[in-house]
Amino acid sequence: MSSDHRPLASLARELLGHAARPFPEHLDRLVLDGRIIGYLSRRRALALRELLPGLVADHPLGAPTRWSWHAKDLSAGERTQALQRAAEELRSQGLITGWRDERFSYWPEDVASLEAPELFRLERSAFRALGLRSHAVHINAFTPDGRMWCSRRSFSKPTDPGMLDNLAAGGLPSDETPRTCAIRELWEEAGVPAPLAERLTPAGQIVTAQLAGEDWVHERIFIFQLALPESFVPSNQDGEVAEFMLLDEQQLVSHLQQGHFTHEAACTVAQGCVER
């Protein structure tokens, strides 16, 4: 980056200040053992009530309503089975879209380490539909002169098609660590070989949250940074990237200001610039 960081630094602080937007008051609350775990629309809540044993409204239907799932005595595996069956039926009703056949793990927000026992696993698209907090990794990659490699999401992606993203990013599947996920995503999305990807370094965490249509999208993002040699040129392997762009500071600021990046990527880029 250039020696004058004031414009980018100011923009980065603004973006990070709005990373997690206020919880939407109009959405119903999904409660497990006394704690709110998700936010969902009324139509999804009413459908889920018929599909998930032990789910009841805490009070007569108002706006919003707390739906308590009495599953304290269930094991993590039993919760997973019950939720997955319900999610599959919601999908058949058209209330969950973008099905991925990939499961995320859910941990309470006060759990500091992902080595703690998970409460359940669930299809990743259901995390969005039920407003559950998921986990993801994003990698900011810089050239020796400080330019940043970014990608444009495929126009066929189910979420945020055609928008700008980090060099590589992805949701954290069950049974994967943030680091192994980052290394895998670097190869699949940008063709970064493992010996080079192994050089990535942690660059903090952020929590993002926003309303996207009917979905409350809530993520804890593990950020990594990677120094790439001048000669390296990314090459997509999985068909999920339309193109790559190497941006200097002025170009990066312009794209951020115009809202060309996804919300999560913009916040991750901001954090990466602050870390540098």
Score class of each variant (00 low, 15 high):
residue 196 L to E: 11
residue 120 F to M: 02
residue 92 S to Q: 12
residue 208 T to F: 05
residue 219 E to G: 05
residue 219 E to F: 13
residue 166 N to A: 15
residue 191 G to T: 11
residue 83 L to D: 08
residue 219 E to N: 11
residue 26 H to G: 06
residue 177 T to D: 06
residue 271 Q to M: 10
residue 27 L to C: 06
residue 260 H to L: 13
residue 49 R to C: 05
residue 73 D to L: 15
residue 187 W to T: 00
residue 276 R to D: 01
residue 102 E to G: 10
residue 93 Q to W: 01
residue 6 R to D: 09
residue 130 L to G: 00
residue 67 W to G: 01
residue 162 G to M: 07
residue 186 L to A: 04
residue 105 S to K: 08
residue 228 L to M: 15
residue 228 L to R: 10
residue 109 E to V: 13
residue 112 A to V: 15
residue 261 F to C: 02
residue 66 R to I: 00
residue 271 Q to D: 07
residue 25 E to F: 09
residue 266 A to S: 14
residue 86 A to D: 04
residue 221 I to A: 02
residue 259 G to D: 07
residue 153 R to C: 10
residue 32 L to Q: 03
residue 209 A to D: 11
residue 100 R to Y: 05
residue 131 G to P: 02
residue 21 R to C: 14
residue 246 L to R: 14
residue 133 R to S: 03
residue 32 L to I: 05
residue 107 W to K: 00
residue 73 D to S: 14
residue 40 L to H: 04
residue 45 A to I: 05
residue 187 W to Y: 15
residue 165 D to W: 04
residue 255 H to E: 11
residue 165 D to Q: 12
residue 89 E to C: 02
residue 34 G to Y: 12
residue 204 G to Q: 04
residue 238 D to R: 02
residue 9 A to T: 05
residue 66 R to A: 06
residue 223 I to F: 02
residue 28 D to H: 07
residue 102 E to W: 09
residue 201 T to N: 04
residue 80 T to V: 12
residue 271 Q to N: 08
residue 35 R to P: 00
residue 142 F to M: 07
residue 25 E to R: 11
residue 209 A to K: 11
residue 96 I to V: 14
residue 244 F to M: 03
residue 196 L to Q: 13
residue 253 V to I: 15
residue 86 A to S: 06
residue 234 P to K: 05
residue 85 R to Y: 01
residue 61 L to A: 11
residue 276 R to S: 08
residue 53 P to G: 09
residue 140 N to K: 01
residue 251 Q to G: 14
residue 196 L to M: 15
residue 40 L to I: 02
residue 219 E to Q: 15
residue 116 A to H: 09
residue 156 S to L: 11
residue 124 R to E: 10
residue 53 P to F: 09
residue 27 L to D: 03
residue 251 Q to M: 06
residue 116 A to Q: 08
residue 46 L to Q: 13
residue 250 Q to F: 06
residue 175 D to R: 14
residue 123 E to A: 10
residue 6 R to M: 09
residue 125 S to R: 11
residue 152 R to G: 08
residue 41 S to I: 02
residue 78 E to T: 00
residue 40 L to Y: 03
residue 196 L to H: 07
residue 125 S to L: 07
residue 126 A to I: 10
residue 165 D to N: 15
residue 199 R to G: 07
residue 181 C to V: 00
residue 11 L to S: 01
residue 253 V to E: 00
residue 94 G to Q: 02
residue 142 F to I: 08
residue 262 T to H: 00
residue 275 E to I: 08
residue 222 F to D: 15
residue 253 V to N: 01
residue 178 P to N: 06
residue 75 S to V: 04
residue 179 R to F: 05
residue 50 E to I: 01
residue 34 G to F: 10
residue 232 F to M: 12
residue 148 M to N: 04
residue 49 R to L: 11
residue 28 D to V: 03
residue 3 S to H: 14
residue 123 E to Y: 12
residue 266 A to L: 10
residue 55 L to V: 00
residue 136 A to F: 04
residue 136 A to Y: 04
residue 115 E to I: 00
residue 53 P to I: 09
residue 180 T to A: 14
residue 42 R to F: 01
residue 109 E to S: 08
residue 61 L to C: 04
residue 19 A to V: 09
residue 92 S to G: 04
residue 150 C to V: 12
residue 14 E to R: 15
residue 19 A to G: 15
residue 129 A to Q: 07
